[in-house]
Computed example of a mutant assay.
Amino acid sequence: MAIRHTPITPALGATIEGVDLAEITPAEFRQVHEIWKKHHVVVLRGQRLTNAQFERFSAMIGELDPPPNQGAGRKSVPGYPNLYVVSNRKNAQGEPIGALGDGEASWHTDMSYLERPPLASMLWSVELPSTGGDTWFASMPAALRAMPADLVARVRRLAIKHDGTYDSGGNLRKGMVANDDPRESVGTLHPIVIVQPETGEHTLYLGRRRNAWIAGLPVDESERLLNIIWSYATMPEITLRHQWKLGDVVLWNNLTTMHRRDAFPADEVRTLHRSQIKGKYVLASPIQQEAA
């Protein structure tokens, strides 16, 4: 069967059919990769995989990152240290086998507090609740295009400090000290507008809203401007809602999208295995790139 794809929304996302990730060939991967670069998020349904096959496909995109230090610590898939578990399931000792529990995860970009943030992330559904737990994505290039010219002119000269104190579930990361002064928290500066290193596309680059700070501005002024930016970044018309089915694999560009998760019933189980592609770029704004 030939590989074919169907756009999900005008702003982002495509479903891909005709490829079995368990046996994907280099030629098939090149087609999937090109579709992903154009649409930022791709969905491949009905995949029957082992962890080894999921890891193999992930590694075709780039070098894998180990699990991040979430509120529950680092939670790897047993025997696969580069894959990690997103789950509310607990073991016989009552300890969580994965991270992020069953609550809502707010809009964020994965590990944006690093100097070289991850290039891509991927989830594979293993266990699902009867309802809830949907994952939402937002297109940052589309958000930038929707912003008025005077706002773009202002923010393209500014940078945000991306906080590393809390994970996307609002939990304090292991080894971090609670801190809600964004000027003092642990984090990294990135331009608000970046050039996507592998495609040249201009895009907003946002992380977590909590503890974000626009460098050089008083906190109250930074908060007002961040609220305006986030209002464009989370507009319904630039978002995609993914309702999970067993066997789904979803791959997204971590430099051009944000994502969030709906809560789901605490007495039901949701388990997904996750991979992440290690970042290799220090992000640059169009102004920095022009000056280079």
Rank of each mutant, 00 (worst) to 15 (best):
L49T: 02
E184R: 15
F29P: 03
P78E: 08
I61S: 07
G98M: 02
L128M: 10
A99K: 00
K280P: 00
I238D: 08
V219T: 12
S76L: 09
T9G: 09
V43M: 08
I16H: 04
H40Q: 12
N171V: 01
L128S: 06
Y84K: 02
P265G: 02
E223D: 15
A27R: 14
V32H: 01
Q196S: 11
R241K: 15
N254E: 07
K75P: 00
G101P: 01
A263Y: 06
I277C: 10
E63T: 15
D150A: 10
V219I: 15
R48I: 11
D267M: 09
P7E: 13
V219R: 13
N253Q: 09
L251H: 05
P117H: 08
K280Y: 06
S76E: 15
M1A: 12
L255V: 05
P7K: 15
I229W: 06
T131H: 12
F54D: 00
G187Q: 13
R261E: 01
P236N: 07
D220R: 15
R89I: 11
A142E: 14
R156T: 12
A120C: 13
Y84S: 04
A266C: 03
L123P: 02
P182I: 14
A215K: 15
L44C: 06
W124D: 01
A142D: 12
D220F: 13
G101R: 00
M1T: 10
R210N: 03
V77Y: 02
W213Q: 09
G216P: 07
D163F: 00
G187S: 15
A52L: 12
K161G: 03
G79K: 07
Q289K: 15
S130I: 04
A215P: 06
I8M: 13
S168N: 05
N51F: 11
H39C: 04
S231M: 08
G200C: 11
N227C: 11
M176A: 10
V282I: 14
I277G: 07
T199V: 09
L114N: 06
P236R: 12
L83V: 06
D267V: 04
V282A: 14
G170T: 01
V43Y: 08
T131N: 10
V249F: 04
P182R: 10
G18Q: 12
L151E: 08
A149C: 06
I61D: 03
R48W: 04
Q31M: 14
W36L: 14
Q276K: 12
A11L: 09
G98P: 03
G46Y: 02
A14S: 08
N253T: 05
D110I: 00
W244C: 00
L128W: 09
M258T: 13
P286H: 07
D267Q: 08
D110S: 09
P7S: 11
N69Y: 09
L49E: 03
P265C: 03
L225D: 05
